[in-house]
Amino acid sequence: MPDTVVRARAIQVRYRRGGALAVSGVNLDLRAGAGLLITGASGSGKSSVLRAVLGLAGPGGEISVLGAPPGDPATLRRIGWAPQSWPFGYGLRAREVVEMVAALRGQDPGEAGRAIEEAGVGTPDARVEALEVEDVRRTSLACALVGQPDLLVLDDPWEFPETTAAIRRAMDRGAAVLAASKDPGGLPGLLGAGLHLVDGAPG
């Protein structure tokens, strides 16, 4: 694994052609075994920066993730992504969501069970639309923990004991952790470096 996990200069994110920039002028440096927490108010561009790193939202600027451009499929298999909100296909059980992530990342089904346990999902056999918000966040975390990735990207992680334990374990084994949070709580102390955004730019 390269020592620099994420290196980004002048990140730009625009969701629609000709639309306003959601993010501009953001630089990131994240090394193996280190953490970085992006903070800011709602709509400040925190999630957009994470999506740019993953190649989900058309990134501009110079971005390198694990030595490859953002969105490179082989690189994405080494990244664990925990989206915010309620990001699951309705009708499925929480366990099925994590099993899908495991299957798509080439992991065996047992790895999904391990990630569910590590994230502390209380009702993995409940349908996602019936999950308590807390279990939604835990399921999201479980998706990120599948396969012990080299980079954990956590959007608005809730600070469960399992979250902090997973972040510590990841950093101890040399993985990098990039997180975004509006209410960081104890995460700054855990992750070390920080970046505050105001209206899509470093503030």
Partner: peptide
Amino acid sequence: RDADAGWVGLQVATGTP
């Protein structure tokens, strides 16, 4: 809707083209 809610993004972020 699934693309805006994050479900499709979760599928793409697994490294699936």
